[in-house]
């Protein structure tokens, strides 16, 4: 999984605690890819779309996206990514507290690849992240040597 063009995980999550728990559990699942963390939508979008070190120039990436961000809605970020010719194949995993049916449908309509509800129960949460880790270890991401 390591390698020159290994997948970078871009985590957009405003809650530091959640970010930390996600990271811990992703690591526990045996995923050791680089994780870049953003706590707001503007900086994250800037990195994804324009940064020299971002996914546009620097190889494959996977987005872990929370929908409730302080400065914008996660669905907007999702829409921007899926509208970009270069980046639209990049997998986006929505990881959020909302389990509203309409919201989930909307995310899939916009092209999200996986939608995971953050369970409050920690065991379930850990299991979900673990499954995400397993998912990350088997999926093929375009342009990568995962």
């Amino acid at each position: 999984m390591t390698g020159e063009r290994s997948v970078t995980i871009i985590m957009i999550e405003d809650d530091e605690g959640h970010a930390r728990l996600i990271e811990k559990n992703v690591r526990r699942a045996g995923i050791h890819n680089r994780i870049v963390h953003f706590t707001d939508g503007t900086t994250a979008l800037d990195h994804i779309l324009h940064d020299e070190a971002g996914p546009r120039r620097n190889g494959p990436a996977l987005i872990l996206l929370d929908l409730n961000l302080p400065d914008m809605s996660g669905t907007e970020i999702l829409a921007r990514i899926k509208a970009d010719e270069d980046l639209r194949r990049m997998p986006v995993v929505i990881l959020t507290t909302t389990d509203d049916r309409h919201e989930i449908e909307r995310c899939y309509d916009l092209g999200c690849n996986v939608y995971i509800t953050k369970p409050v129960n920690y065991e379930n949460f850990a299991t979900a992240i673990l499954q995400l880790g397993l998912f990350l270890s088997v999926i093929q991401i375009p342009g990568s040597a995962l």
């Binding site: 809650d15 959640h18 728990l21 953050k118 409050v120």
Partner: peptide, 17 residues
Amino acid sequence: SHDLHSPLVNILGFTSE
């Protein structure tokens, strides 16, 4: 209720930690 969920995830998560 949504916004209350977020801190709860942390409380329960870090309690598990």
